[in-house]
Nucleic acid binder design. Structure first.
Length: 483
RNA sequence: GGGGCUAUCGUCUAGGGGUCAGGACGCCGCCCUUUCACGGCGGCAACACGGGUUCGAAUCCCGUUAGCCCUACCA
């Protein structure tokens, strides 16, 4: 029986939760869930200036919205309480642990104080560069055994020969010659520990078994491995997942449309659509051992994703994020949802109190029809917008459409429509067909005329549904100016 | 400069010695249609390059090229 799986997602609070980070978190989450393990959320906030409580909230909210629940980590909305036995889950608050570990390494002679000044180091680096040589710290303070009478940075003694091997679950074994790695700094002159040091100490302290993170950390891993060894800890498994790119193959950012998770929410995407699309970006789920062979099979549930997730199946190369694909997945998912599952997302899109009150005043059957006849929308934002005409009369009219459809010829038909009383779908259909007969009109002519009168535009749900939703009084009122 | 990673349609990918190189998104065309959509059918489109190994290479090996990451008292 192997150890229970523990994974972790450790974002830094930069003011937004990046979609690339979400995908990494998703892989951690999928793996933990797959093995009934633990998923930890830890805030990497050693950069004081950016680490406000607000920024931490943004991470919590993003994670909650996208549906990635964590077993250990911050309690959303609370600044100083955490769930899980390894807290606090904010690096800033774990300094005592770091200091103890640094002291331990110093005492054992596995790390040492380096009195080289920053200026000196910079000068040596510049010189090396000028000569076209690689700069690496030569370890000149390594055996000096300096005491703490002078402020000094602390370096880890790295192995000087052989190679360090990362057994990466997605990339395979990666061997790096020890000579290319210098004695790196684990604590600054002011005593604060550096990122690569904190990560290792935290991962060990929290019992992380699988380090799943972006592959921009691959090159840091050999350094970290040396630290694990110095500290006398067993190595976790590593899985470095490739980054996600924009269309121009550059790092995904706002100018590609959206990069932060909240933007995707505002754009009208379902959290499950984001999850599915992200999961399938760089990984192909093999349900029952085989990949999807039709569009239908592309749409999977979380349960299916969890059931077949394998870190080793993740693609090695970076992938371009395609908003069109997300949109398609979103649409497919919307089509499959019950109106009650869609409603909360629509409410979010509307947000305005007057709209919400108007909506709440309606009976369920009405809501069901309103959402049901709009299930083919690509996103919730559009759906919310196309439904808005139900709550407010058109503020303006498409002039071309008005001229084309609201003609003298349809006026008599309009008057007859206004006189109708039975708004049941079939009755409406029969009555309108009779009207068309009488006036020698085509459905297209009348339907479009009605749409313009009702919405100001030439687009609306199917015309009988539109009328049923508006109701007789409103239909008559909106028709009045045109008869 | 050094070290590392990567490379199949425009995009996401399946395939890992013998396949017409399969699917999905997008795109194009046709059909359906009361609008926008949905849906149905069809089409275009790829193994980065060069050498090996082999009867046979997209698949294995070696180079080249290109892109990315690291090379901080940033994270």
């Amino acid at each position: 029986m192997s150890k229970p799986v523990v994974t972790r997602f450790a974002p830094s609070p930069t003011g937004m939760l990046h979609i690339g980070g979400v995908r990494t978190a998703l892989f951690c989450w999928l793996y933990a869930r797959r093995h009934q393990g633990t998923f930890i959320l830890r805030v990497e906030d050693t950069d004081l200036t950016r680490s406000t409580d607000d920024n931490i909230r943004i991470i919590e909210e993003g994670m909650e919205w996208v549906g990635l629940d964590w077993d250990e980590g911050p309690i959303p909305g609370e600044t100083d309480r955490y769930k899980g036995p390894h807290g606090p889950y904010r690096q800033m608050l774990r300094m005592d642990l770091y200091r103890a570990k640094i002291k331990e390494l110093l005492d054992k002679g596995l790390a040492y104080r380096c009195r080289c000044s920053r200026e000196d180091l910079d000068a040596r680096r510049a010189e090396a560069e000028k000569e076209g040589r690689a700069f690496s710290y030569d370890g000149r303070c390594r055996d000096k055994a300096y005491d703490d009478s002078v402020p000094a940075a602390i370096r880890l003694k790295m192995p000087r020969e052989g190679e360090l091997v990362v057994e990466d679950l997605v990339k395979g074994p990666i061997a790096v010659p020890a000579v290319t790695l210098d004695d790196w700094i684990i604590a600054r002159q002011d005593g604060t520990p550096t990122y690569n040091f904190c990560v290792v100490v935290d991962d060990v302290d929290m019992g992380v078994t699988h380090v799943v993170r972006g592959d921009d950390h691959v090159a840091n891993t050999p350094k970290q491995i040396a630290l694990y060894q110095a500290l006398g800890y067993a190595l976790p498994a590593f899985a470095h997942v490739p980054m996600i790119l924009g269309k121009d193959k550059q790092k995904l950012s706002k100018r590609h449309g959206a990069a932060s998770i909240t933007e995707f929410r505002d754009l009208g995407f379902l959290p499950q659509a984001v999850r599915l699309t992200l999961a399938k970006l760089g990984w192909t789920p093999k349900v029952g051992g085989k990949a999807a062979e039709s569009a239908e099979e592309e749409i999977l549930t979380d349960a299916q994703l969890i059931e077949c997730f394998e870190l080793g199946e993740i693609q090695k190369a970076a992938a371009v994020f395609d908003l069109d694909k997300l949109t398609w997945v979103n649409q497919k998912l919307i089509q499959r949802l019950d109106w009650r599952e869609i409603e909360p997302h629509l409410r979010w899109q509307w947000r305005r109190r007057d709209l919400l009150e108007a909506w709440d005043a309606r009976p369920d059957a009405w809501k069901e029809l309103a959402i049901g006849c709009n299930k083919n929308r690509a996103n919730l934002h559009d759906m919310a917008e196309t439904l808005a005409f139900l709550f407010a009369r058109p503020a303006s009219f498409d002039e071309a459409a008005k001229a084309k459809f609201l003609t003298e010829a349809v006026k008599p038909a309009l008057r007859e429509v206004a006189a109708l009383e039975d708004y049941g779908h079939d009755a409406l259909k029969a009555a309108i067909e009779a009207i068309l007969q009488r006036h020698g009109l085509k459905l297209k002519d009348l339907a479009q005329a009605l749409r313009v009168a009702f919405t100001g535009t030439v687009v609306s749900p199917p015309i009988y549904d539109t009328m049923a939703l508006l109701g007789r009084d409103e239909v008559v009122a909106r028709l009045a100016p045109w008869m």
